[in-house]
Design a binder for these strands. Structure first.
Length: 436
RNA sequence: GGAGCUAUGGCACAAUCUGGUACUGCAGCGGACUCGAAAUCCGUCGAGCCGUCGUAUGGCGGUGUGCGGGUUCAAAUCCCGCUAGCUCCUCCA
C-alpha cells in the first residue's frame, strides 16, 4: 500500500514513479479525487459529531437535574439522521479509495532500471566454479549426450511425472527413492546454511486467511493464481513469505530486535494462470513445489544493505553447490507488485543452455508493513513502519533440476555435489535404480 | 460438531444487571525532598488511526472498551452476527 500523504503532497513525483511501474496516470488522478471528496465529507460529518457530543452531554446533565430535554433530543434526532447519511457516504468513498489504492504497485527504488519487461533487466554479476571437472561447462559448447533434467530423472527412476498427472493433474509429480532423498538433502542443506547466517528457522501454517494474503500483496490483485479453499476464506500459500511476513502483523517490534531474519521450508501452491503451455515438462513450473524462503524485518535505513546480504545468502547456496549462476536486477516492468527493488538469481541449466530464475530477493520497503501495520519505535519514541524483505533461498525443485543437469555424466548417472553427500549417507553418485 | 464462560490502556482490574465524563492500582513520564539514589510525596498518563490548523515541539476536533452491524439524543453497558481464548461433552494424530 502506498502512502496517501505522499501521493497528495508529491503528486507530480508520484505520477512519474507510477508511470515507471506502468500504472496509467488517470488511476492516480481518480484516487486523489476520491480522496479529496472523502476528506470533504469527513470535515462535514465531524463537525456534526462534535455538536452531537456536546448536546448529548447537556442532555445527560439536564436529566440528572430532572429537567426536560425533549427539545434538544428532537433537534439531535435530525442531526443524527444527517450523520448517518454522511457516514454511509464516507464509507462508500473509503471503500473506493481502498479498492483503488490496493491495486497500485509499489514504487521502484531510484536505481531500478526503467523498462516494460525482462529485456530491461540488468545483469549484475556472474559466478561459475573454478573447476568444472568433467561436468558440462557453462561457457563452452555442450556435449551432444547432454539431457534435460526430466529425462535424467525419469531414466534414473527418481522422478515420476506421469503418476503425478494421473493422481493430481498436470504440473504435479512424485519424487521416488533417491529423488525424494535428494530433495530432502537439498532443503536440509539450505536451512542449515541459513541458520549459520542467523536466520531463525520456522515451520508455518500452509493455509492462511485472506487478510494475510492481502498483507503481503498477493490479494486483491492476484487471486486468480491462488489455490483458495472453497467455502472458507483461506488459501494454500503461494510462498512461505506470506505466513512469515504476517507473523508480526499488527505488532510493534522492539527496535533492538531488528533486523529479524526468518527462514522456512514450505510447499508453495500456484495455479500458474496465464502460463499455459510454458515449461510444461520437468521441475520448472509446477502447481506445488518446495521452497526455502527468507524473510527480514528491518529499520528503513538498514533495508538495502540487508537486501544485498539476503541476495548473497541465496548465492551462497549455489556457490557451495558449485553451480553457475548470474544475478540480475529486475526492471520496473518486470518486478513483482510489492517490490521496490528485486534481484533475481538465475541458475544455469546446461541442457537448455539458459539461465532460469531460482531465487527472487526483494525489498518492499514499507509497502507491506503499511498494509500489515508492522511498526517499531525510533530513537525519539515515535512509531515507524518497518521495512520487509523476502527472498527464495532457494526454490528446491529448481535446485534439484540444476543439480541433475549440471552434475550429469555421460553414462546417465549423476554425481552428488560434495556438500550434499553428508545428507545422502555419504553416497557419491545417483545410479539408475528401477523402482516400480 | 454441541453447550457454557470470557475479551476494557504496557500489565492487573472496576463500571455491564439499572445506557449518560471508563474507576483504581502497578509500570511509565515530569517535579519536590537528596551530594546522589532508594523510599516518600505532588503532578501527569488511551497507544494508535483519521481530519484540520501550524515552519514546528504542538493545538483543536473526530474515532477508539476483541471485530462488524443495529437500536438510541447518547452504547463498555441493550440487540444481532463474527473472531479468538478457556471449561465440559463429542471426535481425533
Amino acid at each position: 500500500m502506498l502512502d496517501m500523504k505522499y501521493l497528495r503532497k508529491n503528486t507530480e513525483e508520484a505520477r512519474r514513479r507510477l508511470q515507471e511501474r506502468y500504472v496509467e496516470p488517470e488511476k492516480l488522478d481518480e484516487l486523489l479525487k476520491l480522496d479529496e471528496d472523502r476528506r470533504t465529507i469527513i470535515s462535514e460529518v465531524e463537525g456534526l459529531k462534535a455538536q452531537r457530543n456536546e448536546v448529548s452531554d447537556k442532555i445527560a446533565f439536564a436529566k440528572r437535574q430532572k429537567e426536560d430535554a425533549s427539545d434538544a433530543i428532537a433537534e439531535m434526532q435530525k442531526v443524527g439522521a444527517k450523520i448517518k447519511e454522511l457516514d454511509a457516504k464516507q464509507a462508500e468513498l473509503d471503500a473506493k479509495v481502498q479498492e483503488l489504492a490496493a491495486h497500485m504497485p509499489n514504487l521502484a527504488a531510484a536505481d531500478v532500471p526503467v523498462g516494460p519487461d525482462e529485456d530491461a533487466n540488468v545483469e549484475q554479476r556472474k559466478w561459475a566454479p573454478k573447476d568444472y571437472g568433467t561436468r558440462p561447462h557453462a561457457l563452452e559448447k555442450q556435449p551432444d549426450w547432454i539431457k534435460p533434467h526430466w529425462e535424467i530423472g525419469e531414466n534414473l527412476g527418481i522422478l515420476d511425472f506421469e503418476r503425478g498427472a494421473k493422481v493430481s493433474g498436470a504440473r504435479f509429480l512424485y519424487y521416488i527413492g533417491d529423488g525424494a532423498r535428494l530433495e530432502r538433502a537439498v532443503y536440509n542443506f539450505m536451512l542449515d546454511e541459513h541458520r549459520k547466517e542467523g536466520y531463525t528457522e520456522m515451520i508455518t501454517p500452509i493455509v492462511v486467511n485472506d487478510s494475510a494474503m492481502y498483507g503481503t500483496g498477493q490479494y486483491p490483485k492476484f487471486q486468480d493464481d491462488a489455490y483458495r479453499v472453497e467455502g472458507l476464506d483461506q488459501t494454500y500459500i503461494p510462498t512461505a513469505e506470506v505466513p512469515l511476513t504476517n507473523y508480526f502483523s499488527g505488532e510493534t517490534i522492539p527496535a533492538e530486535d531488528l533486523p529479524i531474519k526468518f527462514t522456512a521450508l514450505s510447499p508453495s501452491f500456484r495455479k500458474e494462470a496465464g502460463a499455459a503451455g510454458r515449461d510444461t515438462r520437468g521441475l520448472i513450473r509446477l502447481h506445488q513445489f518446495n521452497k526455502v524462503e527468507m524473510v527480514k524485518f528491518t529499520k528503513p535505513e538498514q533495508s538495502y544493505d540487508e537486501l544485498e546480504k539476503m541476495t548473497a545468502n541465496a548465492e551462497n547456496i549455489l556457490q557451495k553447490l558449485e553451480i553457475p549462476y548470474h544475478v540480475i536486477m529486475l526492471s520496473t516492468g518486470d518486478m513483482g507488485f510489492s517490490a521496490a527493488k528485486t534481484y533475481d538469481v538465475e541458475v544455469w541449466l546446461p541442457a537448455q543452455n539458459v539461465y532460469r530464475e531460482i531465487s527472487s530477493c526483494s525489498n518492499t520497503e514499507d509497502f507491506q508493513a503499511r498494509r500489515m501495520h508492522i511498526t517499531y519505535r525510533d530513537d525519539e519514541g515515535k512509531l515507524q513502519l518497518v521495512n520487509t524483505l523476502n527472498g527464495s533461498g532457494l526454490a528446491v525443485g529448481r535446485t534439484v533440476a540444476a543439480i541433475l543437469e549440471n552434475y550429469q555424466n555421460e553414462d546417465g548417472s549423476v554425481t552428488i555435489p560434495e556438500v550434499l553427500r553428508p545428507y545422502m549417507g555419504g553416497e557419491e553418485k545417483l545410479q539408475a535404480t528401477p523402482h516400480f
